[in-house]
Nucleic acid binder design. Structure first.
Lengths: 235, 235
DNA sequence: TCACGACCGACCGACCGTCGGTCGAACTAT
DNA sequence: ATAGTTCGACCGACGGTCGGTCGGTCGTGA
């Protein structure tokens, strides 16, 4: 075994570049390496601007290896989004179950928690629209499909508690979520600070209205929605 | 001069295919040919599935000609969307100016009018999400940017007339428009007939609520919103 | 009046670099 | 041995470029 290592090492030493190292890893480890790298690159350079070769170079694997784990570049996108989504949904679910929060507080808390590690948050991606259209559309769809049931349960709880009131709980949630996600997508619209503030106010106000909630019971901390970005780096 | 024509004609006649004809046209004529063809193909096969070569073949021009008129495939997309948008906004504007309609009626009329020639309506495009993400994102953004001011004026008129009432007229319009467009995008979500009906009801209901409009003053004809395929059963 | 040649916008299509994806050989661990 | 991995040469399609062609027009001089 050690012999093998020596041989490999010497061979590698002969090459001036770091090429041609054959490194075997556990399935999930390798898969996650690819996913992590892809995620980083997608957020940094945009999806369509990220080449499969870019990922290859970064992960230090060959084309074949990549396609051994994923059948297409788009499948990687799906997986990246899926992972993000799961994490977010878990957190939302956790908030839903908390006993120390009122339904209204849960609603704002879910939003807060999702914003912290939402589909975006990185620094240098001022590259907008075209290169990420697919990515945005897919996450939007996923978030709505996944989050609506959770939020709906919270709303129904609120209705039972008498603090909310609406004939269309689920659809209301769907509508306001879709609007909020679409309109706050920096890739699609750009606002001044005031415009943004006004939009968020209006969203909170509308949600309160549609849910028949007491004025001010949601939001209030809307200013938190725009600042703050969660940083998470690793090596 | 006529000689030249003869030569060209004979040369053409020698070829079995319609190749190698040099046909000169006025700038705008040619440009619109390209645009028309591109629009058709984008709607038929989807944007990313449509090749520049597809367009070339259909219009019967060479690569160079295409790039003489447009600097990229995406620029054609923009132009196509722009054209659509202009047409739609004109119609909306026309509705806004009508004196024979109440503000509420204008609102529903605008929606109706846009649905008729909206970004979708064609026949065989069951090809969904990925190939049209860019197209959808771009039209969504354009429609919202263009339509919000018009709808807002209608709403403000309604407020002045005392039939609407809201502290955030423009933002309300923006929110509901974004939600409606996003959620009714077949490329992103698929509903059963009942789900769709319920969603549309909820949208109308929500809009009435947010605008402080009389219940039933908007919508009522929501069933028209889903027809558009020539299949109208229940009323 | 006409001929001619310079000019120019429209047009052509071979060619190019890049990219997503394939394939079969080769390596590793068991 | 063999199943699970990894490799990288290779492929075809695609968006885009480039040097050059064609034919109409217009100014000029015979």
């Amino acid at each position: 075994m050690n012999d093998c290592w020596m041989i490999t090492f010497l061979y590698y030493g002969c090459r001036t570049r770091g090429e041609h190292m054959r490194i075997t890893k556990e399935h999930d480890v390798r898969r996650n390496e690819i996913l992590d790298t892809a995620e980083m690159l997608f957020e940094t350079k945009g999806y369509s601007n990220t080449t499969v070769n870019d990922i290859l170079r970064e992960v230090n694997i060959a084309k074949g290896t990549f396609y051994y784990y994923f059948k297409s570049k788009e499948e990687v996108l799906d997986a990246v989004i899926e992972r993000h989504l799961e994490k977010g949904l878990e957190r939302a679910e956790a908030v839903k179950k908390r006993k120390d929060l009122s339904p209204a507080e849960k609603l704002t808390q879910v939003v807060l928690v999702l914003r912290m590690a939402g589909p975006k948050s990185e620094v240098v991606d001022e590259l907008h629209k075209p290169e990420n259209a697919l990515m945005h559309q897919k996450s939007l769809g996923g978030i709505i499909r996944g989050l609506v049931p959770i939020l709906n349960e919270i709303v129904e709880e609120g209705i039972r508690a008498g603090v909310f009131s609406t004939p269309f709980p689920e659809q209301t949630v769907r509508i306001m979520l879709a609007a909020a996600l679409t309109l706050t997508d920096d890739a699609m619209f750009s606002y001044t600070q005031e415009e943004r503030q006004q939009l968020l106010e209006a969203i909170v106000y509308s949600l309160e209205t549609l849910l028949g909630a007491e004025r001010g019971s949601l939001g209030l901390k809307t200013h938190l929605l725009q600042g703050e970005r969660g940083e998470e780096e690793k090596a």
